[in-house]
Design a protein around this nucleic acid. Structure first.
Length: 655
DNA sequence: ATAGGGTTAG
């Protein structure tokens, strides 16, 4: 696959006109074309060796008018034409010209051509073809243009072909556009930079960055000089691929050359660095924008506020939001919705309501997104009745007929124990023809499981699979969790295997369902086996998992198992980066791992034993622990060796 | 561009 090279050639055309996307200004007007046609037609005399008499031309004009009228008004125009003009020769190229000029409608002309072609293999002459083709392009009818090109097999001139590429890209038919590029390559002609850019944008819009890079590779091969618009698309493509740093480096590179891309490139980068939680860079980008006379727009701030909210930095988001208002920017509906959603997500429902009424007072009406955000927040706040009322309000306004709305409502109904109502909505979706996706199914499956309705839950999972919907791990986990609770470990394991056979990776907390179910039934060793599986899958166990195990271990006094847990902590996890990060957060970096051990023993013994017992046990454990620390330090520490030692450790414990 | 599904901390 083609990849973007690290550096690119820049042509210093700061703001290129968008040749290919603005048909009304860039493409010659159809009226102009018509004049040209009339002019040319005097010189070309298709099928005739002499001038047509004026009377014949007049006759054509009359007939074309009549034909146009019939085509516009009658659905069975083909028959009507045959009946009304039984002896007329429609295949006369002169007549087709006349029709093109008269009808002023590319689609009607195309239909007429299609009819003629079906009956007589009629193909208009080159000039008519290009007029028709160009007007189809002007009408952005890429499918029609493609069809016409195939059937008439005429060769458009280079300009038309380039506009054809733009038209295809506008209509999302990027693969066809790429085929035209191949044609250009074959005849050794290089399209203009505007056409390349239009194609890059087309690929970007349909989220095919692989094609962006392929095109860019071809561009470099054709020695086309990229311009700032190209750079914008490449930055956006990098961001789409999640390679924000590469996009950023490209931006730096062009800024150094004195070129500034449009806001949208900055916005994409800002959105990316928000995702990475790199707000220092976000701030730097904002400053760069201002310095380069590229004032951040409402979309820019939208990205910033969205990023801050998603990272739970609500106060910062609110500050910027209020600053904007104070500085005279008026937040739009999207901005209000984003802010309300952020507040609801964090449970700040009162502030969310305040903004809700503020926007209504400003004359901005909430839309479906706003309603959904506030309903979500109201549910989270446990106010079922209020949420229900808001939902009815939304329905009264004609919103709520989308999958996302239904899913939100079903999820919350199921969460607050109203699974039946949720299921009713789920059925309503099917009746109304609203698509039910994996989230809809998962929500109801979860609801059924919560109520212990396992048969219904399993049926729904099977229905989901039967409908060919790609399940997610959340389609299985509620069932597995409940089965574990009920003690049906066999069935739970069966579903667990089904899930993994579908390539779905469970998360670390999903193992807890098995571990706690086993611990409840005093099967500590089996619980340990699950821990081992987790570690083998390079999953970082949650603190809760250890707590569950340790509680159980202490309950049945299996000190041997306890030391094995500590062994795993030392052997398996301490070396992974993730764990180190967690250790750092827990404040025991540079401390000896015993402290971790102590935390758990202390917590446990408080609830169980007396202080004397505690001390005695602790010292015993400590000595056990020391054995293993010593053993571990002996090993030189390559991963393989550690794994080998891990398995030896296991057998030691079980002996 | 904005809405729908699970994690963690004292």
């Amino acid at each position: 696959m083609a990849r973007a090279p690290s550096s690119i050639v820049i042509f210093s055309r700061q703001r290129p006109c968008r040749t290919c996307r603005n048909f009304s200004t860039q493409i010659r007007k159809l009226t102009v074309e018509r004049k040209e046609i009339e002019f040319i037609s005097e010189g070309i005399k298709p099928n005739q060796n002499h001038e047509l008499p004026q009377s014949v031309n007049q006759h054509f004009t009359d007939v074309t008018k009549e034909v146009a009228k019939i085509m516009r008004t009658k659905s069975n125009w083909e028959q009507t034409l045959m009946l009304d003009f039984p002896s007329f020769n429609f295949t006369d190229p002169q007549f087709f010209w006349q029709l093109l000029k008269q009808q002023n409608n590319a689609f009607l002309s195309l239909r007429f051509f299609h009819w003629l072609h079906l009956h007589s293999d009629f193909v208009p002459d080159q000039v008519s073809c290009s007029v028709l083709f160009d007007s189809l392009l002007e009408a952005k009818a890429c499918n029609a243009a493609k069809y016409f090109l195939q059937v008439s097999s005429f060769t458009p001139e280079q300009g038309s072909l380039e506009r054809y590429i733009c038209c295809l890209c506008d209509g999302g038919m990027v693969n066809d556009a790429l085929d035209v590029f191949v044609k250009f390559k074959d005849i050794g002609i290089c399209p203009s930079i505007a056409t390349w850019n239009s194609a890059l944008l087309g690929c970007l819009v349909v989220q095919r960055t692989d094609l962006v890079w392929k095109l860019y590779h071809d561009m470099l091969e054709s020695r086309v000089v990229a311009d700032i618009e190209t750079v914008e698309y490449l930055i956006r493509a990098f961001c789409y691929d999640g390679k924000f740093m590469k996009g950023y480096q490209l931006l730096r590179q062009v800024l150094e050359e004195g070129l500034v891309p449009r806001n949208i490139a900055f916005n994409a980068l800002i959105s990316g660095f928000c995702k990475l939680r790199n707000f220092v860079r976000v701030s730097e980008l904002l400053h760069t924008m201002i310095a380069k006379n590229c004032a951040p727009d409402i979309y820019t701030y939208q990205e910033v506020i969205n990023g801050l909210c998603k990272n739970k930095m609500l106060l910062n988001a609110l500050r910027i939001f209020n600053d904007l208002k104070n500085r005279g920017y008026s937040p739009d509906r999207v901005m209000y919705t984003t802010m309300i959603h952020g507040l609801c997500e964090m449970g700040w429902i009162r502030n969310a309501r305040k903004l809700w009424f503020e926007m209504i007072n400003k004359g901005i009406l909430p839309n479906e997104y706003t309603y959904n955000s506030l309903i979500h927040g109201t549910f989270k706040n446990g106010e079922f009745r209020k949420a229900r009322k808001l939902y009815d309000d939304m329905r009264d306004r004609g919103y709520g007929e989308t999958t996302a709305s239904y899913n939100m409502m079903i999820t919350h109904l199921c969460l607050c124990g109203r699974t039946n109502e949720g299921f009713e909505l789920f059925k309503e979706m099917a009746q109304k023809g609203i698509i039910r996706d994996v989230i809809s199914y998962n929500a109801v499956i979860n609801g059924f499981c919560k109520k212990g309705m396992m048969v219904e839950g399993k049926n729904l999972l099977n229905e989901l699979l039967a409908h060919g919907i790609q399940p997610s791990s959340l389609s299985y986990i509620p069932l597995i969790k409940k089965l574990c609770e009920l003690g049906d470990m066999k069935e739970a394991k069966q579903l667990w295997n089904d899930m993994q056979n579908k390539g779905l990776k469970p998360m670390a907390c999903d193992y807890d369902h098995f571990i706690s179910a086993l611990c409840v039934r005093d099967h500590v060793m089996d619980g340990m086996d699950w821990l081992v599986v987790m570690l083998k899958n390079k999953l970082r166990p949650k603190k809760k998992t250890f707590e569950t195990l340790i509680k159980c271990v202490s309950h049945c006094g299996r000190l041997d198992v306890m030391s094995r847990i500590v062994y795993y902590i030392k052997m398996g996890i301490c070396n992974s980066l993730v764990w180190k990060f967690d250790m750092k957060k827990m404040g025991w970096r540079n401390k000896r791992p015993e402290s971790f051990f102590k935390v758990y023993t202390r917590r446990r013994t408080r609830s169980v034993g007396t202080k004397k017992e505690e001390l005695a046990k602790a010292s015993k454990r400590k000595s056990l622990f020391k054995v293993y620390t010593r053993r571990r330090t002996k090993s030189t520490g390559t991963k393989k060796e550690e794994l080998a030692e891990g398995s030896r450790g296991k057998s030691l414990f079980e002996a």
